[in-house]
Amino acid sequence: MLKIDRLTKRRGSALILSDVSFEARRGRVTGFLGPNGAGKSSTLRILLGLDHPTSGTALVDGVRFAALRDPLAKVGAVLDGSGAHRSRTGRAHLNWVAAAGGIPRRRVDEVLELVELSGAARKRVGGYSLGMGRRLALAAALLGDPEALVLDEPINGLDPEGIRWIRTFLRERAAAGHTVLLSSHLMGELSETVDDVVIINRGRVVAQGTLAEITGARRNLEDAFFALTSGSGR
C-alpha cells in the first residue's frame, strides 16, 4: 500500500537518501530500522509530502500523498513530538484537524478515549508530558480511522506500559487488515511487533525481508542489525 521507489534526497552537497526502495503491505507491520541519522525520518517525511525528494517517488495506493482525496482516512501520521501548538488544549487541536477532514466532533471524543487522554483534553498541550504529547499525536492520526499508519520512532518517550500498549495496538491494527509502517532505532523493542523489516544505514537500504529472513541464523534482530550495519563503520 505504501511504496517507496528509488528515493534520493540531497541537501546541499550531503546525500541524505540514496536509491531507497521498499514497500509496506496491508495486514502487516513493517519496521523501518536504522541508527540515528540513517535517513528514516527523511524517507517518512517525503512519503508524507512534507519534504521534496531529489528524485524517485513515494506513493500511497499509487498516488502521491499531496494528491490524496481524503488524506486523513488514508494515512495517519505520527512524527516526533505532539504536532500541536503548546497554547491550545488537546481537544482544540483535535477539533481543527477533524474539521480539515470533515470528521464529526464525536470522533474527537472517541480518539481521546482510545489513547486515554480524555482527562487531559481541556489542558493546554504545553502542560503535557512527553508521553501525553505522543498520545495526542496518535489521537490526531487516528481521527480518520486511516487505512495506514506511519509512525516515526513511536516508542520514544513512552514508559514501559506505554510501549506495551502501542505494540498491542499496532498488532491489532495490522490484524484488522491495516498497513503499519514504523521507524525505530531500537531493535530490541521491536522484534515481537514487526512482520517485515527494512534496514537502512547511511541513506541506503542494506537489507529487507520478513523478520525471519532478516534475523536468519542470528540470535535475534538486534544481532542481525549490528552485523548488517557495523561494517559501514558506525
Binding site: L48, G49, L50, F65, A66, L68, P71, L72, V75, A77, L79, D80, G81, S82, G83, A84, H85, R86, H93, V97, A100, G101, V125, A137, A140
Partner: peptide, 19 residues
C-alpha cells in the same frame, strides 16, 4: 508563525496536503 511551534505544521500538512 504559530504553525512552526511544536511541529504543528506537520499536522497541518498531513491533514491538508495541497499547499
Amino acid at each position: 508563525t504559530s504553525e512552526y511551534s511544536g511541529g504543528q505544521l506537520r499536522t497541518t500538512l498531513t491533514a491538508m496536503p495541497r499547499r
